[in-house]
Design a binder for these strands. Structure first.
Lengths: 157, 157
DNA sequence: AATTACAGTGCATAATTATACATAATTATT
DNA sequence: AATAATTATGTATAATTATGCACTGTAATT
């Protein structure tokens, strides 16, 4: 039932899990209570313009051809923040992905702004880890950051 | 005969013509005097990391994922991954301990492989932190990594 | 309300792609 | 050069994906 819902669910699953064939997708959907046949999945994937790609290890997996939703670069931010590609949350943590070399600048900026809900940040080369203070949920964290970086956060949990 | 030449030719053909399946590719190659079986083409396309995409009209066609590069897949784990000492999981996090100076190389490699269950990685000098996406358990993470890095994980789990 | 039109689906099966296995070709080693 | 080791290929077949057809349900039309 409700094809549109299933299509959305598929898009979400493809972004978060490694799915290599219709059967795998079928069982993931079943876990969510959605029951469909392989034939319908074939049609769904065509509708969504999903393609099967081979990663560098030779393993195949499905990806959406139109990435859009979660990754994009924003141009209105200060120069040193323009390297931000995406922000995502999970539990008490947030991960900011940047173009290579920009993570430290972003982390430094966040430290300077000094947001009470954020306990600390750790920066690698292209990734910043945000650790929320205990009691702060990822939703709250997302809400707070969306004020600080209104144009960056478009999609989170 | 001369695999490399054939691979180059395939890249060229994919750029010039619309090719929708192995048989089409096979006959295009035949026109150029190159005779191969479908099985070999399947392997060639995997080597070249060609994927089949669906255009807006619903027609499928092969395209190179990395236009330009003629880099082939490296199935062996690179030397710089030999610096891994241990891998451990806890909650939604994983910690890879390496010999000093190797953490970045390992993290970079994992990023390149691009595993959907992993939200991000951060590398220090001898430690890589892995953050799983929400909903992914450390067990799942371990399972996934053991597939991707069989030669590493088997020693530690 | 009854009738028609059409999108969506499952089933069965066709079409396409991937792979195990055996062998040939190539490259490295002694 | 001879032999061993590695890589590439074909054959046969398995695995995966796509689709024709019949049927169902919903929406549109009268």
């Amino acid at each position: 039932m409700e094809r549109v819902y299933r299509l959305e669910l598929i898009k979400e699953l493809l972004g978060k899990r490694t799915i290599s064939n219709h059967d795998e997708l079928q069982s993931e959907l079943l876990k969510q209570g959605v029951k469909v046949t392989q034939a319908t999945l074939s049609r769904d994937l065509k509708t969504l313009r999903v393609s099967r790609v081979t990663d560098k290890l030779g393993k195949s997996r499905y990806v959406l051809q139109d990435p859009g939703t979660s990754q994009f670069i924003d141009k209105e931010l200060p120069d040193h923040l323009s390297g931000v590609i995406s922000i995502e949350f999970s539990g008490q943590l947030g991960v900011i992905n940047t173009i290579p070399g920009f993570a430290n600048a972003v982390a430094y900026y966040i430290d300077q702004v000094s947001i009470p809900e954020i306990m600390g940040t750790i920066a690698g080369d292209d990734t910043v880890l945000l650790i929320a203070r205990s009691g702060v949920s990822s939703n709250q964290l997302a809400g707070i950051l969306s004020k600080t970086f209104p144009s960056i956060i478009k999609k989170f949990i």
